[in-house]
Computed example of a mutant assay.
Amino acid sequence: MDEHRARFVDIYEGPILVGESFWRFTAKLELFKRPILDAEWVIEAPDYIAMADIFDITKNRDWPRYCEE
């Protein structure tokens, strides 16, 4: 993971209490610099790049469920 500079495009929504001690906020952000993968990822882990959308879909579908417990 890398740090990226961003700014809020609009006011955030929330907080929403999720579970006993987790809070959820939703916001639209604008990145100042688009994150780009290093060329070595293409050689070392091509499946990571080709299947990245599956990870995002699964994370966004399943992860909130675990925060609610």
Rank of each mutant, 00 (worst) to 15 (best):
V42S: 12
F32D: 08
T26P: 00
G19F: 00
I43T: 15
G19E: 00
L37G: 08
L37T: 10
K33L: 09
A45G: 07
I36W: 11
W41Y: 15
K33F: 08
V42P: 01
F25S: 03
G19Q: 00
I43P: 04
K33V: 14
I36M: 09
L31V: 06
T26D: 12
A27G: 08
F25Y: 15
F32L: 10
R24D: 02
K28C: 14
S21N: 14
L17H: 02
R34A: 11
A39T: 10
R34G: 04
L17I: 10
R24V: 01
V18P: 00
L17M: 10
F32P: 06
V18A: 05
L31G: 03
F25R: 01
E44M: 09
K28V: 06
I16A: 10
A27L: 08
R24W: 02
I43F: 12
W41F: 15
E20A: 05
K33I: 09
K28L: 07
W41C: 12
G19I: 00
W23P: 01
L31F: 04
F32R: 06
F32M: 06
S21W: 11
W41S: 07
A27P: 01
A39E: 12
R24M: 04
I36Y: 09
T26F: 06
E44F: 08
I36G: 03
F25T: 09
K28R: 14
P35Y: 04
E44T: 11
L17R: 02
P35F: 07
I43D: 14
E20M: 11
L37S: 10
F25M: 06
E40C: 10
E30S: 11
A45E: 12
R24P: 02
F25K: 02
L31R: 06
A45S: 15
A45C: 15
R24H: 07
R24S: 03
I43M: 13
A45L: 15
E30Y: 01
L29K: 04
F22V: 03
L17V: 08
F22G: 00
E44Q: 14
E40W: 15
L37V: 13
A45R: 14
E30F: 01
L17K: 02
L37Y: 11
S21C: 06
F32H: 07
K33P: 01
K28A: 08
I16R: 09
S21I: 03
E30C: 05
L17G: 01
F25N: 02
V18E: 01
W23S: 07
